[in-house]
Design a protein around this nucleic acid. Sequence first.
DNA 1: CACAGCTTCTACATCGTTGTAAAGATCTGC
DNA 2: GCAGATCTTTACAACGATGTAGAAGCTGTG
Lengths: 363, 363
Amino acid sequence: MKREERASGAAAEQADGAGAAGRRGNGKVTLKDVAARAGVSIKTVSNVVNGYAHITPETRTRVEAALEELGYRPNLSARHLRRGASGIIALVVPELDVPYFAELARHVIGAAAERSLTVIIDQTDGDPERERFALDGDRALLLDGLILSPLGLSREELAERRDRTPLVLLGEHISGGPVDHVWIDNVAAARAATEHLLALGRRRIAAIGDQPYEHGETAQLRTRGFVTALQEAGIAPDQRLIVPVPRFHREHGARAMEQLLDLEQPPDAVFAFNDLVALGALRVALSRGLRVPEDVAIVGFDDVEDGRYSTPTLTTIAPDKERIARLALDSLTARIDGDGDQPARELEAPFELVVRESTAGRG
Amino acid sequence: MKREERASGAAAEQADGAGAAGRRGNGKVTLKDVAARAGVSIKTVSNVVNGYAHITPETRTRVEAALEELGYRPNLSARHLRRGASGIIALVVPELDVPYFAELARHVIGAAAERSLTVIIDQTDGDPERERFALDGDRALLLDGLILSPLGLSREELAERRDRTPLVLLGEHISGGPVDHVWIDNVAAARAATEHLLALGRRRIAAIGDQPYEHGETAQLRTRGFVTALQEAGIAPDQRLIVPVPRFHREHGARAMEQLLDLEQPPDAVFAFNDLVALGALRVALSRGLRVPEDVAIVGFDDVEDGRYSTPTLTTIAPDKERIARLALDSLTARIDGDGDQPARELEAPFELVVRESTAGRG
DNA sequence: CACAGCTTCTACATCGTTGTAAAGATCTGC
DNA sequence: GCAGATCTTTACAACGATGTAGAAGCTGTG
């Protein structure tokens, strides 16, 4: 009796559309189609799909066959709507083709995958409008969480955020703000870089990368560490040796280096505030016939892969990118899982000085 | 009269929950909350949100005020479910921290933004399993389209795909397959690179990057172009000068170059199959005291930014990445908008040879 | 044999949005 | 003053999945 019901149910399906369902233009097969095909209710199919325990082996087999035949795939939008979570987080960085961010993105994607989260990656080019959109735009509602490396937005604007999607900030931009924040100690890192140059006996040390204006917090912290190290070594900082840049790209490092080498007393060492700037500077030094590190030693910041294969290889400050990604995701998943009311966390990631040829020579 | 109705409606809301709705724990405000607050139907609010024309200014104002007060934001999952499209596409590449893919990603994101599409970026590390998941996994159902740069999957596996999400393939891997495909003429490009070295008078030219095994189609095409150019110049290819690499990374370029320089008759020029390989090779050549290009000239492939700031700067084949991104998105949006039944397209993007110091010297 | 308790399955409501159809209000022209 | 057109707003039914409650069938207990 029961079996007959099923059989007739299935037969009805074949007539009314199950046969076509698998091949419908849009290729979308729903639970309903599968249910019709298997002659069971939609909910039973849903139960099979989700591994619910109490199902007769016979039913399970039949449903699984129907799933397979029709090639069922769940509609994630519907599932998200029902479950209230999307399983998607966004990583928003200024520029993806800056190696530091690309390498960071790799680690974030990896750490997210461990937690079954998908990552959307967005680049803002530092445009405050686009950062605001990422933070507060409609798209934010699709997300379970957001990791933002801000460049253009001020602390006040970040505080004004209306959206309640869990957020983690990366970088030095907003310390002590109202949201979770992963950072490295830029002052200490800059000091370590500078002290390394001092230990090599350099005394006329330049810094490339200051940004003495709004939104340049990271650069300003590195400048502070640089100046502090000099002062502690009894050297008065020379303003002409502290060259600002608009952004941390190779070309700006190159221009700054040209300016420095045109000085009456050019520097015998350079601390560049990131590796791209350092590589730009290196390029200019070499093309002017200087020897690195003999004539001028160079230290970078970020430890991107490029610096491991330049000639000479680049001494640099290496932030622990994997740790940064991991801390950000730990913090984000904690918020997603509900401790939204905890006070903002400040999470510090370690760094280390990696000495290579651009300061140590071809030892 | 009418006004009174409204007023009472609004008053009722305040009592029953609109007041709390804006501050509910999860922070989710729905059309329903806004409708209650403004004393209109849900659909009217929806109409306001979507800019429907026939609404009295008075109503519009009131609804807009309620939207603003409660901080309404649409639920994208629900919208997608209803509309049947998510507005999300995925870009799946082997490695994001390879500059070529990072730069490509930038262009894809840009081109997608012009079409109001959001991009999810995924890296597979060339793992066939992860490529398959990107292609056929549940996540694919969230997407309106997919751009894949395959590395590990064979043509057969790609053909077996069940999912019907519009797909565009990048790269040489699967030509003439059943799906849209954007590519550059690798044979011609490799010939151009090799002919450039021949024109400089080099005769003992090496190639780094062959992959004479499964999935190495791109490399094999470049090898073919290289060999053809040599033969046309009357030079018999020397197998010892064609060095395979497992992947296109700096370290593999470096190792291959060491091997070449250890030959009894080392090459006077090298065509590296991508810029990273070229930079690895350059690094080894310089550290052995060779002059580039005087002792050995080097050409790369991809035109990534690193090569513009190396010393010497790198001559390279520059594929038009922006064009590639644009062609991929044009093709994808066409499929999304419904011409799913058109035959597969083959879209060729241009390239050019960019001559820099690694072959031309410091002219 | 009545009834509780379990297993297996189903109907229904629901998530938040939007398309459809139609109701109610207002205006037009004759 | 009334049919008909137009404007404004609404109720309802989807989109596809899943939680809830409970029906139907079975087993075992007293």
